[in-house]
Write a protein that binds this DNA or RNA. Structure first.
Lengths: 179, 179
DNA sequence: AAAAATATGTCAACATAACTGACATATTCG
DNA sequence: CGAATATGTCAGTTATGTTGACATATTTTT
């Protein structure tokens, strides 16, 4: 284990005071968001595991159910991932009978995505515990406080409409989030 | 492209109505949390990329700075990941001179983690844009509304102390404390 | 009608960050 | 001493993201 008891070079300047003392930065909210989100996605994660699915499937099934007839391009734009990333999970969901693809009526190049009954049920099953958690967190709050929460969350979201969809070959940044 | 125009079996029952219509589930907050969190972490992500680091490094450097002297076990419990997962990023942070390990004064098996000046600066640089985003979202809210947001986020967090720490072979004792 | 652009799909290779399992080592405790 | 604990590490797997290159169907433009 290479005895790091000796690894304290008195010249290296170790900081022993907690970050946040005398600082203006909002560490409280930063950490609350981290823990809240972590637990928020833990509910559907447990359900997904029984299906052999992951968070990526959750996001796809969620948005397709929220907006049936969504095109692949629109979904890519919402999720901000590459089509290659989407392809893998979408294929599984289509083959598993959760989602169907239908050629666009106007533009037949498009693939419009629709949930099946089974897909709708999965999406609802995943949303239920999350909704329950939200209701629980809301239970102590009044109507005006709840509106404040909505306003706050909306204010945290980037407004710039830098849709990125896909580009030529592909396109991408970096990300992983989760619903 | 295997013309899926014919893949609409009229017996498969596709749902064309958006999930959420006439439903009690709180889809608005579910989606706000998704987008808010995604954008919230996009800020530090961009900075981390210039260091060749990822989100895992962010979390480690953050909590070590927030609680200097944290032991490895405590950090694992906070992050709820395995020691093998932590090992990789912690090693890079130690070798890069962002974090130092010091044998515990009482229990010399422990490795207490301290940020260096460099590590503190990284943590602050990562927290800054997040704090700015929060301040921006808060700017329209009054003191009582801000308290409501804190209360809401806290209410979203699991209170049960079912830590999971490790599993491998080692210290996976039964009962653990929590954050 | 031919050419270009668009929407989608797909193959291949790779990176990150999580996981499990097994084992090593130092230290503390009974 | 021997068991438990705290940490580290090797090896292999999985999930999800990435880039690059190319194929195919369809629509739009010239």
């Amino acid at each position: 284990m290479s005895a790091p008891g000796a690894t304290n070079p008195s010249a290296t300047e170790l900081l022993c005071v907690a970050m946040g003392d005398g600082n203006e930065l909002d560490f409280e909210i930063i950490e609350l968001l981290f823990f809240a989100y972590r637990d928020f996605i833990s509910d559907p994660d447990a359900i997904l595991e029984t299906y052999g699915f992951g968070r990526a499937h959750h996001r796809v099934v969620h948005f397709v159910n929220r907006e049936p007839g969504l095109t692949v391009a629109a979904l890519l734009d919402t999720l901000k991932i590459t089509k290659q990333s989407l392809a893998r999970v979408l294929k599984q969901l289509v083959e598993g009978g959760y989602i169907h693809q239908v050629a666009g009526p106007e533009d037949r190049r498009q693939r419009k995505l629709y949930p099946t009954r089974k897909g709708r049920e999965l999406a609802l099953a995943l949303a239920r515990p999350q909704s329950r958690r939200i209701a629980n967190a809301f239970s102590a709050l009044g109507e005006s406080d709840r509106r404040a929460v909505v306003q706050f969350l909306a204010g945290m979201i980037d407004k710039d409409a830098t849709g990125k969809t896909d580009s030529g070959t592909t396109g991408g940044a970096a990300g992983e989030a989760s619903v």
